[in-house]
Amino acid sequence: MSVKSALLALLAQEPTYGARLRAEFEARTGGTWPLNVGQVYTTVARLERDGLVKAAGAADEEGRISYRLTEAGRREVAQWWLSPVDRDSAPRDELAIKLALAVTVPGVDVRQVVQTQRTATLRHLQDLTRLKKHAGDQAPDGAGGADIAWLLVLENLIFSAEAEVRWLDHVEAMLAREASEPRRHRMDVPVASDDITLGRTAR
């Protein structure tokens, strides 16, 4: 997630100082991705170095300096809204890697690995649903912008957890099909290129 772009987007709304930027970011995302204030100040310093923000005036009586966007900063924010989030460079998914290894390493109870993960993900989904119910109970009608932002983030997490459970169901069904109807043409994977006789069929 680009903290830089998010802070620029907040500064496009109004000039403000680092601690308030952090508070705004966390309020709008329901504290899902907490920032430490040092990270915010470091990012703002980089934005200033790159000519995207500049001080909006002198420090106030508490020594806080507010920043505002430069013209280059406005262009950068506009570009961010128009650009899709890059999904090509997908981060490594530990669960996908774990299951890919589980089905190829002998002696692993893959069904149990799947079940353990599904239970954990369901628990997470229950927690998210409780948060959502609570949010709905608090503001059933006409939720304000910050509430909608928080619900939107919650729904994103719920969809992700739900997708993971569905994928685990799919994995389990695939494994069950494999067990009952093993594919005839498997790719034999030689352990070493000069020892072709070691090639074996994964089970």
């Binding site: 369901l122 989904l125 649903t129 569905r166």
Partner: peptide
């Protein structure tokens, strides 16, 4: 069979 719906429960049994 919907995880999203099961998540409204206090407890989910498999």
């Amino acid at each position: 069979h919907e995880a999203r719906h099961a998540a409204w429960a206090d407890r989910v049994i498999f």
